[in-house]
Design a protein around this nucleic acid. Structure first.
Lengths: 162, 162
DNA sequence: GTCAGATGTTCTGTCGAACAGACTATCTGT
DNA sequence: ACAGATAGTCTGTTCGACAGAACATCTGAC
């Protein structure tokens, strides 16, 4: 046969598997955190103080706005963030991190770093940095632009006589 | 603050994002294929002729047994595989690829390779190979062994006074 | 041989996460 | 002042994953 590759050499399979392993690790680390790993990213984004509004937050993290509502509900119920009215736009709410939220975030960051070290243990240190760099560069591209490449799927019908 | 990293530099975020982008691309390529990307992996695994039984197939690909049942149902309905009774074990069914399935697989492999090229376009060719290699090595480790590393999550409570 | 337990496959029911759509309140431009 | 867009919330639906049971069959012990 032409290329019946091993599953192990399949990019999508490896990608999904590593991503799932990381997610599982993260879920363990984020045990009691309301939103799980996503709650962590919300917390981290809010700590940076960048987006402020719920919609901007949702767009940045790539979640639905209706999901962001009850995601923030839970995190707020845990006392890690606060929603206060935006003085400049009374429709919007400015999401701010509380002192407890900052402490929790710091702790989680430390735990996550440790857990990731174990996850990447099969790789040498310089390889770990390389992987992080490569993935970050790939993740940085605009998803809309990336999806435009899907037209490549409609190529010529090659010779596939089995 | 200690390390409020950019989301872009978060390993889990980059991993999930790239994995999702790949999944989206794969779903487009596997458009009409019954099981989507997973159906493709089933097809590829069957073409290799390794596992044969449904349960072995399910374990290899990491899906639930009950899911494998109707996953194979759909692929079989499309005429890409056949289930015949295992002569050595009448409980089990041997999953075999049909001629149409082989042709379909070959075509999908070609399309997927093209699509992945576009996905990895931001990276130089040698970096692409490197990424594939690093991910494959990480994905190769036993997930049970990997999850054992989760104990690292229960570390000392460091100083996180905000 | 026969019985208990394990295994392969399928079916049913349940649960949760994600999304579409409607709705209210508010902003912006004309 | 009005039309349309935007922020946030709520409701309903849908889909996929998993647990558990059911059935057939295999395997090992006795």
């Amino acid at each position: 046969m032409s290329t019946p590759r091993q599953v192990e050499s399949d990019l999508g399979w490896a990608l999904g598997r590593v991503a799932r392993a990381h997610l599982r690790t993260a879920q363990t680390v984020m045990g009691g955190l309301p939103g799980g790993p996503r709650g962590y990213q919300v917390l981290a984004a809010v700590a940076r103080g960048e987006p402020a509004s719920q919609l901007a937050l949702a767009r940045k993290l790539g979640v639905d706005r209706t999901v962001m509502t009850y995601l923030l509900d839970e995190i707020q119920a845990a006392g890690l963030i606060e929603r206060r009215p935006d003085p400049a736009d009374r429709r919007a709410r400015r999401v701010e991190i509380t002192e407890a939220g900052g402490a929790r975030l710091c702790d989680l960051e430390r735990r996550l770093r440790d857990a990731e070290e174990h996850l990447l243990a099969p790789l040498r240190p310089e390889e770990q940095d390389l992987l992080r760099d490569l993935l970050a560069r790939l993740a940085a591209v605009d998803p809309d632009q990336a999806s435009a490449c899907q037209v490549a799927a409609d190529l010529t019908e090659g010779d596939c006589t089995a």
